[in-house]
């Protein structure tokens, strides 16, 4: 199908974009277009105005200040994939971005677009939940920030008002020795994940877990933070048995069901993926060899 008619606007500055969003009714922001364009082509989205922000190039940047990583909303997924800074400071984000669509779509797709679209299976949303990222939002009254948990309200629904725009995302970084893992299961490489699991964890010199943050993607409307499991991991020495027991707790999560995938299957996948992600993250945190299911990954 072809997109419905709309008026096209291409502001060249953030101010101009905000003025347009404040003035126009039923407007949609177009960033990389890798989610909005399919929705337009299939007429799931029917905006009267499209505000193309690709010309606001100062919204594309990656920078680090101390233990805070800030990424501009218009940063292409490709630039995250190839950033040496992200590979070093935020390897979980890099591991996740390689599972976002394909190289072709990452060449256009943006970080901010993925977060604002907020597909339940979006890898970028799960990573933002794991880090407890802070979102910088610009509106007519200036800028405000929102924690990811406040930003992601419900199924493809964010806390952004129609006249607001996401401009940047801030990730509080974990120390370099932290373990990480992001894995997902999809029917085809690059397809929407049925379930994804992401883990950040730290272990002390004796191998006891001192800090952990976990989330599942694809099981609910928004990423599911597993704070109770993370809390229970603290103080434990990691082992396959411990991680299997912890992952077993995913057996009673409230998982989505759709025409193709049952809730039971999602829960089963969640258990398996979380166990594997915990094992891999722990191996990385403690410098042990990666488990067999992860040996194709970089240490």
């Amino acid at each position: 199908m072809k997109p419905p008619p709309f008026a096209y606007h291409a502001p060249s500055s953030l101010n101009e974009a905000l003025q347009l969003l404040g003035r126009l009714e039923n407007a949609r922001v177009l960033a990389g277009g890798q989610s909005l364009m399919p929705m337009l082509n299939m007429r799931f989205a029917q905006p009267d105005h499209v505000v193309d922000i690709n010309g606001i190039t100062d919204l594309a940047y990656i920078r680090r200040e101390g233990m805070m990583l800030e990424i501009g909303a218009l940063t292409r997924q490709r630039d995250i994939e190839f950033s040496p800074l992200i590979a070093e400071a935020c390897p979980l984000l890099r591991e996740a971005i390689l599972q976002v669509g394909h190289r072709q779509t990452r060449n256009r797709g943006t970080l901010g677009g993925s977060l604002c679209h907020l597909d339940p299976a979006a890898e970028m949303a799960a990573v933002a939940a794991i880090y407890g990222a802070e979102l910088v939002i610009a509106g007519p009254q200036g800028q405000r920030t929102a924690a990811f948990a406040e930003f992601a309200l419900d199924y493809m629904t964010t806390c952004l008002a129609p006249e607001e725009m996401l401009v940047a995302v801030r990730y509080p970084l974990w120390p370099a020795e932290s373990g990480y893992c992001f894995i997902e299961y999809a029917r085809r490489h690059g397809d929407f994940a049925i379930v994804s699991a992401g883990v950040l964890l730290r272990a002390d010199a004796s191998g006891r877990i001192s800090q952990a943050s976990l989330a599942l993607g694809g099981v609910g409307a928004v990423p599911l933070k597993l704070d109770a499991i993370a809390a229970e991991l603290i103080g434990k020495a990691g082992s396959p048995a411990v991680f299997a027991t912890m992952a077993e707790a995913c057996g009673d999560i409230d998982a989505m069901e759709d025409a193709l995938i049952t809730a039971t299957y999602r829960r089963q996948l969640a258990k398996t993926l979380l166990r594997r992600a915990l094992e891999t993250a722990y191996a990385r945190a403690t410098g042990q060899p990666l488990p067999r299911h992860a040996q194709h990954r970089a240490a």
């Binding site: 394909h102 072709q104 779509t105």
Partner: peptide, 22 residues
Amino acid sequence: HGVCGACTILLDGKPVRSCLVF
């Protein structure tokens, strides 16, 4: 809608799907 890749072209040297760009 960005699934099949048949419309791949090069935009500034990079492969993109020309059905997902106006």
